[in-house]
């Protein structure tokens, strides 16, 4: 089956499960509790234009935050991971400040950034910053000595080491942490668009406004899920471009295991020969 068919099947199963849950709850309680997907989709259609505006506002807030967090956290994290003395100095600070929920810093953020969109972006960026920072640091710590020696022996300076070894080697882990942090970003996005930071734009505000007409609120929820999906797809595309080397397969790799063994064993096999490839 083609990949796109799997995607369609996956979304269909999700909707069916939602529908099932909705019917079960309605049956158990004797009245509708959560709207069924078709009602919600009808509301998406009816509020299409409004939802579009909110989608753009939310996407901008989350997207800009993700970009800011990444641009600051990646260089910083890679340096902390690679420079041993910096690591010893900075890492305790990270471990102490990371567990503080960024939300408790809101009053301070209000004072610094005011009440507009900048405080929303600041709140989300701050939370994502830590997630990406910690991944980038970890990735930079695990760089193989062989790859470092390979550029050092050709006289690489410090910038070149980051440019040609540490950054490219860490990109897969950085992109994974960006993907993981979308979940947290969404939660903070919703929070930053509802009380006490309520605004008139953004999917959060739309959902909060229609809190008591669940059909419409769920139209907002669907749109939010769609926003997440769009971000994941974008990150996948970025990964396929900047980590292209991870997607290549040795072209003369044997084919026979696919017919002889079930998929799991085959994957283990491929991983193993891949490893021996690498290690010589």
């Amino acid at each position: 089956m083609k990949r796109s068919l799997y995607t369609i099947a996956s979304i269909a199963i999700l909707f069916l499960a939602w529908w099932g849950a909705s019917l079960t709850l309605e049956f158990a309680r004797g009245r509708p509790i959560i709207p069924d997907p078709w009602q919600a989709l009808v509301e998406v259609g009816r509020h299409g234009e409004e939802l579009g505006r909110h989608f753009i506002a939310s996407a901008a807030r989350l997207g800009i935050s993700l970009v800011i967090a990444t641009l600051v956290a990646v260089p910083f994290g890679l340096m902390v991971g690679h420079e041993r003395r910096l690591d010893r100095l900075i890492t305790p600070m990270i471990y102490i400040t990371y567990p503080i929920p960024q939300v408790v810093l809101l009053p301070i953020l209000f004072i610094i950034f005011g009440l507009g969109d900048s405080v929303r972006v600041a709140l989300i960026s701050l939370a994502l910053f830590f997630q990406i920072l910690i991944s980038a640091r970890g990735a930079a710590k695990g760089i193989s000595e062989e790859h470092l020696a390979s550029v050092l022996s050709a006289g690489a300076n410090r910038f070149q080491i980051y440019r040609h070894v540490i950054l490219p080697a860490s990109l897969p882990a950085i992109l994974t942490s960006m993907r993981v942090s979308i979940g947290l970003g969404m939660a903070l996005l919703y929070l930053s668009e509802t009380a006490p930071m309520r605004t008139t734009t953004g999917l959060g505000s739309f959902i909060a406004k229609h809190f008591f007409s669940l059909d419409i609120a769920f139209a907002g929820v669907i749109t939010m899920a769609f926003l997440g999906l769009v971000l994941y797809i974008l990150l996948d595309i970025v990964e396929r471009i900047v980590c292209r080397w991870q997607y290549v397969q040795r072209r003369d790799r044997p084919r026979w295991p696919s017919r002889l063994y079930p998929n799991k064993i085959r994957e283990q096999f491929l991983r193993k020969i891949h490893r021996t490839d690498r290690e010589g």
């Binding site: 062989e146 020696a149 390979s150 050709a154 006289g155 690489a156 490219p168 080697a169 290690e279 010589g280």
Partner: peptide, 30 residues
Amino acid sequence: IRRDAALILQNAGLLPWKTVWENANMSLRL
């Protein structure tokens, strides 16, 4: 490091994220 000395490492020392062309030109580039 000396510019007139080349070092070949135990496992060729290639960078997996660079193509053959980029790897081969790495020392010149650095």
